[in-house]
Design a protein around this nucleic acid. Sequence first.
DNA 1: ATCTAAACGAGACGGTACGTCAGGTCTTGGT
DNA 2: ACCAAGACCTGACGTACCGTCTCGTTTAGAT
Lengths: 210, 210, 210, 210
Amino acid sequence: MDQDASKGRPGRKRSEQSRAAVLQAALKLLREQGYAALSIEAIARDAGVGKQTIYRWWTSKASVVLEALVAQAPTPLAPPSHGSLGEVLEAFLASTFQALKTPRGTGDILRGLMAEAQLDAQFATEFRTGLIERRRELLRSVLAQAQARGELAADVDLFLLVDMAFGVMWYRLLVGHAPLDRALAHELASLLLRAGAPSAPRRPSRPTKA
Amino acid sequence: MDQDASKGRPGRKRSEQSRAAVLQAALKLLREQGYAALSIEAIARDAGVGKQTIYRWWTSKASVVLEALVAQAPTPLAPPSHGSLGEVLEAFLASTFQALKTPRGTGDILRGLMAEAQLDAQFATEFRTGLIERRRELLRSVLAQAQARGELAADVDLFLLVDMAFGVMWYRLLVGHAPLDRALAHELASLLLRAGAPSAPRRPSRPTKA
Amino acid sequence: MDQDASKGRPGRKRSEQSRAAVLQAALKLLREQGYAALSIEAIARDAGVGKQTIYRWWTSKASVVLEALVAQAPTPLAPPSHGSLGEVLEAFLASTFQALKTPRGTGDILRGLMAEAQLDAQFATEFRTGLIERRRELLRSVLAQAQARGELAADVDLFLLVDMAFGVMWYRLLVGHAPLDRALAHELASLLLRAGAPSAPRRPSRPTKA
Amino acid sequence: MDQDASKGRPGRKRSEQSRAAVLQAALKLLREQGYAALSIEAIARDAGVGKQTIYRWWTSKASVVLEALVAQAPTPLAPPSHGSLGEVLEAFLASTFQALKTPRGTGDILRGLMAEAQLDAQFATEFRTGLIERRRELLRSVLAQAQARGELAADVDLFLLVDMAFGVMWYRLLVGHAPLDRALAHELASLLLRAGAPSAPRRPSRPTKA
DNA sequence: ATCTAAACGAGACGGTACGTCAGGTCTTGGT
DNA sequence: ACCAAGACCTGACGTACCGTCTCGTTTAGAT
């Protein structure tokens, strides 16, 4: 999580084996019992590792989980870049939603991490910079390209469009009142498109009646 | 939280004084130390109340906080119903954001509750039905009226529009990467309006290319 | 260990069952593994008791052991009061030594407690007042009676005689260079007698040469 | 503490500097925080030495302390050999007691070592042979000379007399119920003398009345 | 006026996990 | 081979809360 420049330092090197065992144990326990039931003690026990070894390299159980999650995801995360914005956006959202869906899966883990970020300011930063911002940037760049191509109004706030997309996703993920499925991807993409569309050329969109 | 029919039952009545003391203690501790540091033990101690009394009437510390929060808010929450949808929506969002802003205030408490809802399925339900859904319904009815007036397309999914509004709010509240201020209220209202606007009559918005 | 006046105090009473289980577990573990290997954690585990319950009533593992030891000993400890001082003293010493001799027994426990008293000032006081001083007083009263009868010189320091008796006992117990057996009881009693004897009447003991 | 024959062995020689640093650090920490708070880690840290270096040459922290103590004391410990036994004995005891008295001093260290010897059988042997027995032999030889001169009865058990002298000393040192001062040296010497005195020549000491 | 039953404060109980400390072992790179 | 450094596994520490379980004490409706 931190130093890499272990160049000329004396002393034993960090054990890659222990690191892997910890991450693996964390994932296993997450799968078996869910985030809420996870404890550092249990991870250490299951990984056959001293608690101190965990405390030495991570700041909290959430940090462990975050690293495990990132390490696990192959996530080239290259967004599909051909096609119209509507197509690309829908595909992006659909694949993102897809990844959350396994029963004891990524979605539940992310919920746990987001919860932890509310209770632990230190971790909140790790979480934001290590995960949230990366995903945001990905989507933002997709939108920026579309904007450059004129598919989005030049003055539309891409930042806010990103918030709307991820906002809906997280809101449904956390509240659980509605599914995150392909239909949503379609409809959400369409609404975002309409929201960000350049105003109709030369014939300003007359709202409603008038 | 549960029974009201204390009609003919024998035995001592529930002490209104204890109930008030618990809620007040919870709010005080929230203000002083934040949600993460809160514990049932501390609430009981501070309220001068036995732990059992809390367990008798609430299912978790989150339930106590939720009730305290609801009891505290005067919540007329009558949405302003005159004016165009744009005006009403912006006003609604602005006042909602406003309520979250005090430093150790409502926003932080809500973050804590949302976190708890991720870790405790039982509470998740209480939270959704006791708070989330009420706010959603409020906004939905505003949008429904506008839709009836023709300010929103007849086929737009109001449910999803609500998700977009609250999604952005929660997302920013939980991640903290951007402010929840009046400017956001304005811009968000405007984007939602555009997203839900009835299609321009007779001249369909031609996307991109063309 | 502390309060007894639990008269009008509210709250649940101390569980006599837990207290007994702790003392018994302590003795069992002492027998099985010796004092050095004892831990509060192990006592709690073995007694089926929460650690907090031990910390609530005792200040250290040594306190537990001390109480277990005292509770275990039937300790009528009435010193035999008939017979000459020589006989009484020898009997007292012999029975005292006898009590220490079991293989994983009282002697080893006392060694552990004395060790602890060196490392923990708080316990040192408990140990002195709860055990050491009681035994000292017992022996001192025996000697005082003998002094009253004229079997010991009027000006001899009984306090110091007690130190000599117990000093030898503890010294051998702790260093282990020589046995604590009946022969020692006999010889030690005899030397103490000579040391404390009233000076020979009318013919003062001429030291050395002459 | 162990091997000395580093005759033809290959490899780097033992660092005298490290050895000295360890002993010095041990003494410093003893002075500053007392025996109970001492740890091998702290010694290594303070001495700027690897833990392994300590484990390589000593078996326990007690061993380090023992060596430090012995190395520190110049202690030719030549007992004064002129004068009557009474004088010599009193001087011996007085100077011994004197050495223990500094506030965070030798006495407290010896208490710690004796404690350790109770908890660690391996060290008990080191302690007995490396310190206890030497002191005993010193006193025994003094008494033996006196016995040869006829100042002590021929049949008195010198071994036991030594136990009585050191027994009182250790007992008071460990229990702390009474001081180890010059007055004690005087009185103890006198009692030991009486206990070991040759019986009055040709007219057996008639006890008391009779 | 008693009886009965629930709620109350207090606080002890068996537990789980926390984060820290030290023990003793094992690398690593440098001398 | 030894050394300083430091990571490693182990296991105990003492603490905080958890949710449950007595206690003896009100409080109130039903008798």
